[in-house]
Amino acid sequence: MQPKQRPASVSPVTGRRYSAALCFALLLGLPAVLQAAPHIPSSESEVLEVLPTQLQGNNNPINRLRAQWRANPLDTTTVASLARLYIETGREQADPRYYGYAEALLQPWWQQTQPPAELLLLRATIRQHNHDYATATQDLALVVQQNPHQTQAWLTLATVQLVNKEYAAARRSCAALATHASTWFATLCYSQVMSQNGDAEQAYRLQITLLPQLGKEQVELRQWVLTLLGETAARIGKAPEADQHFRAALAEPRRDNYLLRVYSDFLISQQRPLEVITLLQDKTNDDALLLRLAIASRDAQQTAATARYQALLEARYQAAKLRGSTLPAEDAALYARTFGAAL
């Protein structure tokens, strides 16, 4: 399971010294003509990609914060606000470059054992996104030690513990939520542990009770609960209910790549590959979604499309290794099982 960052109010450069142009190109994958390996430019002046211009204009929040940051690059309040906005933009646009921008902002504090509190959770979130779970856990433990009422930190810590199958530790994090923060979030936290640790039926009943407590304006939380309901219903064999929950989550007015991934996995398991292709055909910037698209096209016997998606995936994975990124183990294993080749 790849951890999901919830709620999204907080959610890479790796430190290796590649040119900025190369890093951006590798993060984006390949251009329209597929290549067998990432292109390495002959000089730092070579232009590989013209970045989007939608952020132009003085009224854009990112540009306003960037101007403040340039004036005082060590002001932690500005750094935290801009890094958080980068992360939110990267998640919404499925553009990994923004996570790199956020990490770059935090470089003056990246190796500190106790950075300022407003930056520590952001650093943990980026490390979690990069699948660096050991250091993310260390950061999160420090966050909740400093502020036991930090709901986001407890939730993220429980999520990382679930990824590592540390169920007892995850339960302790949920218990801390109940003690220090929110009963509603603690119940949701417990239900996730139960769903993955042999008591999915009870988890489903708990999650059903949580949804009516949310208002229509709480779009992100509603989508989160509906997604979990879909996952849990699928886990206990309630396929029609799972499909209903996933569709309701998709109907919420926001894009969520985790939802798209788990719903695609569900559709593939139900032998409905054409629906996956329709769902994901314009969302190939995200590697996890591209992998599901490749699997669906294979299942639909669309040979040319499968070859195209597989070549693009392999190039993306090579690029990730070149820039020092860690691939999600679950997706690497899924790729190997599906296409019979290790990455």
Rank of each mutant, 00 (worst) to 15 (best):
Q318N: 05
L188W: 14
H180Y: 05
V163A: 14
A71T: 00
V47T: 15
L291G: 10
L155R: 08
Q161G: 04
A336Y: 02
T227I: 07
T113E: 10
Q150A: 12
L157M: 02
A32F: 07
L162A: 11
P38A: 09
T227W: 04
L334I: 05
Q301A: 07
L280K: 13
F24C: 05
H245V: 00
W154E: 11
H245A: 14
Y309W: 07
S269Q: 15
G198R: 14
R261Q: 12
L119H: 00
L27D: 09
F246K: 11
V50Y: 12
E252A: 07
F339H: 00
P115D: 07
L343C: 00
L214T: 09
A134D: 14
L343I: 14
T306P: 13
L65P: 05
A341C: 04
A20M: 08
G198W: 08
L267H: 08
S269C: 00
G215E: 15
G324W: 07
P41W: 11
F24Q: 06
R316Q: 12
P52I: 10
L211G: 05
D132Y: 06
S9V: 02
Y167Q: 10
I126T: 01
A288T: 05
I208P: 01
A170V: 06
A32L: 11
G215Q: 15
T135H: 11
A71Y: 02
Y263K: 09
R172K: 12
P38V: 04
N130W: 09
R172L: 08
A341W: 04
A102P: 00
T278E: 14
G100L: 06
S11Y: 07
W224D: 13
D132L: 06
N164W: 07
A200N: 10
K238D: 03
L55R: 11
H131E: 06
V276A: 00
Q107R: 15
L30S: 10
T278R: 10
I40W: 10
Q244T: 13
P253L: 08
A21L: 04
L65V: 05
Q202L: 11
A239M: 08
E252P: 09
A315T: 03
Q5F: 10
Y167D: 04
K216F: 04
N164S: 13
G340P: 04
